[in-house]
Design a protein around this nucleic acid. Structure first.
Lengths: 209, 209
DNA sequence: CGGGCGATTGACTTTCGTCAACGCGTGTGG
DNA sequence: CCACACGCGTTGACGAAAGTCAATCGCCCG
């Protein structure tokens, strides 16, 4: 997480597992820096279609989508008991006018979120189910590594349905693919516990034919 | 387009049809406001996978994805002879520190781009090919309407392959679906000229089962 | 200890991708 | 000025990938 942001954290807020940090349509007020725990974000459109749009862990920033319209566009749900730093947006605005560094960090955070979504679009639009799942696992692994956790041995906090929604496939397909990867000795999966046995082969799978 | 931005437009730049406004990897320098013409943006990832990530017309803002990393992440290609307003980013930074209005507009633009991409993710992740194409046509129609052009009678500037890439399907599927919609009397399509005959049925198609 | 959510697995169906042939227009060079 | 080539689009036949529907299982949590 951008360090300059830290100063903005006026308060901490705890969110119970399963509870919402904010919900789609709520008036926008603050950005949130995840201190600990795990979140998913999801959209709903007017026709009731919904989709998980991302997973967020310590150091990630939530709520950026609400700036434009004055309302949160997404719902952020805690997938385990979590703590966030509350950064009131008016304060962010004011301080970033005084501090070019902070300004740049905010812009960078917004821009990086855009870039992240390009990646998801690429994944959804141009990859097969197995490539998507492999990419997903590798991405999780990388993010755990960066935070000092084991990149090859971790807990999934989300359900198969969450993963499926995020990756644009059904939960059955997620389950089948997990089983397949396990049979091939590439990963070991028991419930939500994942152990990456052969990350190289996983990388190979994630690549185009 | 946000009106306050207009003041930032130091110069205009012309881009010939088929030419790049900027390319993935170029050092980031400016944001671009489309004055006239039509652009597509596309990504490439390390493995050579690529995808069209958006279409941009008069009033839209290009280049936002470059702020975070100092390099443009996308390639922006003109699909017809086009004109853009060049807004040097250092200038944007400076002025938006002096003007809360401008600051808010910039943040809003970034945030809206994030929200737009959520919509694309929803489209790619949870809709069938026919729903995607119907949604795409309706979206184009809406954007032409907002700009004072006919919402029911317009030219596509992009190829079937561009559309297919953007919508996560093959160009053959795009072509077949166009034919189907035409047979059903919902649209009339001759080459790149589109006439929406029955927007209500198109809307019905775009909705979930 | 039992209930219920989440996960797995199977059988079958559907959608869409792939491969391939052909058609239409347009611009260019002989 | 015509012919042809090339990019773009259409259409068809076929197959593969993933969705749907359904039954069953296994963990947790209460």
């Amino acid at each position: 997480m951008p360090s300059t942001f830290e100063k903005l954290a006026s308060t901490l807020r705890h969110v119970r597992s399963g509870g919402p940090l904010f919900s789609s349509g709520d008036p926008f007020g603050s950005l949130y820096g995840v201190h600990g725990g795990f979140f998913k974000t999801s959209t709903v459109d007017g026709d009731g279609r919904w989709q998980v749009t991302g997973f967020f862990m310590a150091g990630d920033l939530l709520g950026l989508d609400g700036i434009g319209s004055g309302r949160y566009q997404l719902t952020a749900t805690a997938l385990e008991d979590s703590v966030v730093a509350v950064m009131p947006y008016p304060l962010v605005e004011t301080l970033s006018r005084e501090s070019p560094d902070l300004q740049r960090e905010l812009h960078a955070a917004l821009s990086r979120e855009i870039a992240r979504e390009h990646g998801v679009m690429l994944l959804l639009g141009s990859m097969h189910a197995e490539q998507r799942l492999a990419t997903f696992l590798l991405n999780l692994s990388l993010r755990f590594r960066r935070r000092g956790y084991s990149p090859s041995d971790f807990q999934l906090r989300m359900t198969r349905a969450d993963i499926g929604s995020y990756l644009g496939m059904t939960l059955e397909t997620v389950s089948r693919l997990f089983s397949r990867l396990q049979h091939e000795g590439i990963v070991e999966i028991r419930q939500r516990h994942v152990r990456l046995i052969d990350a190289d082969r996983l990388r190979a799978i994630s690549e185009p034919a």
